[in-house]
Design a protein around this nucleic acid. Sequence first.
DNA 1: TGACTATCCGGATCAGTGATCCATATATTC
DNA 2: GAATATATGGATCACTGATCCGGATAGTCA
Lengths: 197, 197
Amino acid sequence: MRADARKNRDHLLAVAGTAVTEQGVDVSLRDIARRADVGLATLLRHFPTREALLDALLRTSFDELAAQAAELETLSSPEDALVSWLRDCVAWTTEYRGVTVLMAAAIEDTESALHASCVTLRAAGARLLTRAQAAGMARSDIDGADLFALVAMLAWLGDQHSLAPRADHLFEVVASAILTSAGSSDAEEERRPWARS
Amino acid sequence: MRADARKNRDHLLAVAGTAVTEQGVDVSLRDIARRADVGLATLLRHFPTREALLDALLRTSFDELAAQAAELETLSSPEDALVSWLRDCVAWTTEYRGVTVLMAAAIEDTESALHASCVTLRAAGARLLTRAQAAGMARSDIDGADLFALVAMLAWLGDQHSLAPRADHLFEVVASAILTSAGSSDAEEERRPWARS
DNA sequence: TGACTATCCGGATCAGTGATCCATATATTC
DNA sequence: GAATATATGGATCACTGATCCGGATAGTCA
């Protein structure tokens, strides 16, 4: 890649980052190009589709979340690891308003630029879930795909102005559903040790 | 209203109904006008915005759901009424792909044409929830707004191709979270009598 | 029956979107 | 310094929802 092309690419990525943070993933590509003092065609040559641009933008975050899952797997108890990782996933999506819909579409579209990243993330969650299930800490009738869907649901909630205030609370509600296993105790505090005070 | 105008309005509403069912709420208004053999301007005069069109289209369904809530309140047990009404709400949204986002936006935008309908629906759900809570059948730390958000989440799930297959199962998961009250029994079948077999 | 007017209609147009083409400008190489 | 491979961005296309306004028509009154 020619030096000027690389410079333009990096600059575009930086500008796109702030633009997406400010206006969400539906931000006009023309706007991004304008703010980067670059023609629209240049942006679209470096990143042929909006998905390709977002993939380049989000890949780092995806990798960090996957790495964090691996770390939690060794450092925390099964239920703490699962719940705090889920919380981190949901919290992360608030940085990029609207990204959830793209991720949901990408995970079944093997042609999508985001596909691989989403599959990796789902697998990371599945490992944490399996571990919690093996320890009897999570209900056994859900799998990695269910978990991915639940995270997507909660992330979507945070994207909707009117529903976002409920997001934290409903996260706890959903988490309680995941962690409620048939064999657990009846005492509220013992059944929901992860609940925020 | 002049006779020809009324005829056009009714015809547009019928065509819009099929179009939205087929292609979701983001269907092109130009397409609807074309299929109704009418100019785009005519469609937009009868229904100044997409929301206005959808309001006219969905108002009947909204009223039916609200009425059904009132009926269930007198005919069924508190938990059956709540859960089956929630199931009906989620099932209904599958008819109109994408309607959830509009409803979430409408419930906080008092200027929206859909606002009143959404508030009515939320109130209907809140009554069923309060009744179940009074009977000790639902957790007491959620309210009507939470319930509305949970339904929206599950409805949104059904809109996403890749996540939709999980929708039914995750409905049960979320329902179990709503109906799990601190004082209920420990036995699985007794704690989740609404679960599908 | 015939004319008049308030109302309704829809083609033309506008600004916005993502995408594509191609002549021009420029970095790299020889 | 010249040649060439590559990057660039303005012009353009099809599409979106929205708006304007000259022309068509329905309902009314004589």
